[in-house]
């Protein structure tokens, strides 16, 4: 089939989204990283179920647990931002509205991610 694309376009390999495979790749990398971290997080949730404030604080303050939670927060925040970006690009079509949604998405992911990391550090460094 004859392509309607110019040779230059084909070489650049850019689709309708206007960017290359960076997002696709980062989504996979963070997905793989998230698997062991999420399993660890689920184990922590089970271990902490029904526990009081002091126990929760001690566990979260443990260096290994804190490190795991920080890595999970970082990787998951990147992952969820990319996932929501795809959803917005799929369903929101007006340029201004789309840019507003994408901005909001980045802000949300950043604020949630940084707040969590700050809270984990605060617990871990003060215990």
């Amino acid at each position: 089939m004859t392509s309607m694309r110019t040779p230059r376009r084909r070489v650049r390999g850019l689709g309708a989204a206007g960017s290359g495979t960076g997002d696709f790749w980062l989504q996979r990398v963070t997905a793989i990283v998230n698997v062991p971290l999420a399993v660890g997080f689920l184990a922590l949730l089970i271990a902490l179920s029904g526990s009081n404030f002091d126990t929760a604080r001690t566990w979260i303050g443990n260096p290994i647990v804190a490190l795991m939670l920080i890595l999970l927060t970082f990787s998951a925040a990147l992952h969820m931002r990319l996932g929501m970006k795809v959803i917005i690009e799929d369903y929101v079509h007006g340029t201004i509205l789309k840019i507003a949604c994408l901005l909001g998405n980045t802000l949300f992911s950043t604020v949630v991610g940084v707040s969590c990391i700050y809270a984990i550090l605060r617990v871990s460094l003060s215990s």
């Binding site: 404030f53 929760a56 998951a76 969820m80 929501m84 949630v112 707040s115 809270a119 984990i120 617990v123």
Partner: peptide
């Protein structure tokens, strides 16, 4: 994916509450 996106707020509430002290927790 969307549920987890919104659920991250709940996770944040938990972890921030632990860091803020007994009353918040």
């Amino acid at each position: 994916g969307v549920v987890l996106y919104l659920g991250s707020l709940f996770f944040a509430w938990w972890i921030v509450a632990v860091s803020a002290g007994q009353k918040s927790y």
